[in-house]
Design a protein around this nucleic acid. Structure first.
Length: 381
DNA sequence: TCTGGGGTCCTAGGACCC
DNA sequence: TCTGGGGTCCTAGGACCC
């Protein structure tokens, strides 16, 4: 890997909320959250004005998808149970998630980035990496071009981080959050990255962070001060060595422009926990529906699945999965349901069920054979 | 009135094969 | 009848990310 790589991470600012504000500009400056279901959609009055649901009107088991800065001032944040948020900010405007809208904006934003730098990697709906190594302009100038292209296409702002690798670019784009540009050289590691919280690193989640904290480590610099040997003793060979590398700003992952899906799944959390015997009918209906949705997803995207699985979450939040590998790949709802039912029979259904999910893995394109998968490693003599 | 939905990747044990 | 040692597949669970 050449050491003169230049990678950008581009992150849309408060993406879902910003998309919604473009639809409902009258909500600008108000406390607003995105959560809930279709029934929370605003109603249009005869005079064209709109009436919005309030957080206090919400009844259900969801969590906040996002919250505007005005709403965050009440102590609510994304991921918080919506019922809990309703106690803190009962008057906040409540909007249902509108993924079709976000996908539309996502396409516009990614096309805009591509027009400036064609080599991009998708990382979810609201962020991308771009490999700038082959571009001639100064980083600062590219960052401005990226931002103005995005703004022209969407009327939305984004934050850009440019650094020698993906790890640092991602950390960078978070430094100047709304509407910012941050450019980082490897020499800046100590001054700009080491003071940051360890959990800012992609891959240090709640569990790893809790363990680091229990060892007296909270910043990236404090990880860097540990020996690799000690980190391996604490976290295992693989994760310990990785912690050591990332704390020193090292990351040679390439920008991956294309990837095939690994699995497709659908799941649903019930309004009330359902019991396998008492609510047999409702469970059966939901189960069939999930299988139909997964089958439709497979067919629309043109995949067959050889591994079918289910997921159950019980009333005590214990989660179990079962899956089965089929001799032949399938994509129709009946075959999916049959395989998923076999899986269901292997679970002890004593506790009430909170969540039910169906998943299709081992994806292949129709007509592909077993030998197609490792073909990329075939040498051509 | 706790805790969504859609993903990826890793680990680890047992089966099975050479 | 004292018991190796890889490699791969299958399955379950868990950490993590957006």
């Amino acid at each position: 890997m050449p050491d003169d790589r230049r990678i950008a991470h581009i992150d849309m600012d408060a993406f879902f909320a910003s998309c919604e504000l473009s639809q409902y500009p009258e909500l600008r400056g108000q406390a607003m959250v995105v959560a809930g279901r279709r029934s929370d959609a605003p109603r249009v009055n005869a005079d064209g004005t709109r009436e919005f649901a309030r957080l206090r009107d919400y009844a259900g088991r969801g969590v906040l998808t996002t919250a505007t800065y005005e709403a965050r001032a009440f102590g609510v944040h994304s991921g918080m149970p919506t019922m809990q948020a309703a106690r803190l900010a009962p008057d906040a405007i409540l909007l249902p998630v509108n993924f079709d809208l976000y996908r539309t904006y996502s396409r516009l934003f990614k096309d805009a980035i591509r027009s400036v730098s064609p080599t991009i990697e998708d990382v979810g709906i609201d962020e991308v990496y771009a490999d700038l190594s082959l571009l001639n302009d100064e980083s600062e100038q590219i960052a401005r071009k990226l931002k103005s292209a995005v703004f022209e296409a969407t009327n939305l702002t984004c934050s850009v981080g440019i650094a020698p690798n993906k790890l640092l670019a991602k950390l960078c784009s978070d430094i100047q959050k709304p509407d910012g540009i941050t450019i980082l050289r490897l020499e800046d590691l100590q001054a700009r990255i080491w003071p940051m919280a360890a959990k800012k690193i992609n891959g240090i989640g709640p569990k790893a962070n809790a363990k680091l904290t229990s060892l007296g480590i909270t910043t990236i610099g404090e990880i860097a001060a540990c020996s690799e040997q000690w980190l391996i003793e604490q976290f295992g060979r693989s994760y310990g060595a990785w912690l050591h590398r990332v704390s020193h700003g090292l990351d040679d992952r390439p920008v991956v422009t294309h990837s095939e899906p690994v699995s497709m799944s659908r799941e649903t959390t019930f309004e009330q926990d359902l019991h396998a015997v008492r609510h047999r009918q409702e469970l059966g209906t939901a189960f069939t529906r999930l299988c139909e949705q997964v089958a439709l997803d497979l067919q629309r995207k043109g995949y067959l699945a050889r591994r079918i699985g289910i997921k159950l979450r019980f009333n005590d939040f214990q989660t179990v999965t079962r899956d089965v590998t089929l001799p032949e790949p399938v994509a129709d709802a009946k075959a999916l349901r049959h395989a998923a039912t076999q899986c269901l029979k292997r679970v002890d259904l004593v506790k009430s069920i909170r969540l039910l999910g169906v998943k299709a893995g081992g994806l292949q394109r129709p007509g592909a054979t077993e030998s197609d998968a490792p073909a990329q490693f075939t040498l051509d003599f």
